[in-house]
């Protein structure tokens, strides 16, 4: 799980172009949206693409993302339980 969490942080920094953010700056349980990283609705859609491309998880309804993208840990747990690649 720790390995998946680190990998996720690195991927998120890369695909969301979070310049000047390092994996250790993102707390495992901190909310991804709202304050903090300053992510917006397009970032949420980009995370949906990341889930599909990297882990083979298809989210049809963007509203699902709201639950899954609560924090890095919630996201990692969801991926761990549902991944197909």
């Amino acid at each position: 799980m720790e390995e998946l969490i680190l990998q996720l942080k690195q991927e998120i920094i890369k695909v969301l172009n979070l310049e000047d953010v390092k994996p250790e700056d993102i707390a495992d349980d901190a909310p991804l949206f709202g304050e903090g990283l300053g992510l917006d609705s397009i970032d949420a859609l980009e995370l949906i693409v990341l889930m599909e491309k990297m882990y083979g998880i298809k989210l049809q309804d963007p509203a699902q993302g709201r639950e899954i993208f609560k924090s890095i840990r919630v996201m990692a747990e969801y991926i761990h339980a549902n991944r197909s690649k």
């Binding site: 695909v15 969301l16 397009i42 970032d43 859609l45 980009e46 693409v49 599909e52 491309k53």
Partner: peptide, 9 residues
């Protein structure tokens, strides 16, 4: 085929 929403906008 993985279009990126942040590129498309």
């Amino acid at each position: 085929c993985y279009p990126s929403p942040s590129v498309f906008v």
